[in-house]
Design a protein around this nucleic acid. Structure first.
Lengths: 110, 110
DNA sequence: GCCTCTCTCCTAGACAATCTAGACATAACC
DNA sequence: GGTTATGTCTAGATTGTCTAGGAGAGAGGC
């Protein structure tokens, strides 16, 4: 019911994934770890959320997958941001900014 | 599919409703209008989202309903924040702050 | 060589919140 | 008396996330 853990807000996962890929291709597992680190462990991406999300993004044409080898010498699927994905990232960043602004307006944290 | 409109993020509606009731009791319709106004029309609360949410909150004991008469002389259900609801509001405000901070960390809008 | 740990990917099914798209009732206005 | 604005309500679909698993393969200890 009420969650003590920092569950993600629905809709933000795509944004976070796209953002993780902004500078360099990464494999799925790495994306999850990266998001955890960047948020100082306030956000946790479950694998059951991550992989479906990655497929979703790939289907949309926002990211592209390629098999490769990880830093630890394991085979891993590396995802790259496509040009369309880059546009989408911008869009989602703006829409996040707008939404959080709007909510803060209501909360009075102007 | 992708939405141009400013859909709500799941989980934020409860917070917004509780916040609307912080200062005075309101009826459902009024809450929706209020949220729209306070957010400068960036947020829109659909009725199909609103009423289920109100029931949810009432079941949790966070708000209390009472039939009354609106400013326009219609019968309307007025909702009041309970003491538990007030606590919940604080909790949710904090958790929103934490979450948006976390996301902004990832986005680099530190 | 064998065992275990860790890394990495994947999936089915449940769950919960929101949206779509309606219906209904009544006050106010023309 | 018809129309508009106000106000509540519901069924059903949709969607995104979580739970709770499984599986393969390299690394490292023995």
């Amino acid at each position: 019911m009420a969650s003590n853990k920092a569950d993600l807000l629905q809709g933000t996962l795509d944004l976070l994934i796209l953002k993780s890929l902004q500078n360099e291709p990464m494999h799925g597992f790495g994306i999850a770890v990266r998001i955890g680190q960047m948020s100082k462990d306030m956000l946790t991406v479950e694998q059951g959320s991550l992989y479906p999300a990655l497929y979703r993004l790939e289907e949309q044409g926002w990211i592209k997958a390629e098999w490769g080898v990880s830093e630890n010498n394991r085979k891993a699927k590396f995802y790259t941001l496509t040009p369309t994905g880059r546009k989408q990232l911008t869009t989602e960043e703006q829409s996040w900014a707008k939404l959080s602004t709007a909510i803060n307006l209501v909360l009075g944290n102007a």
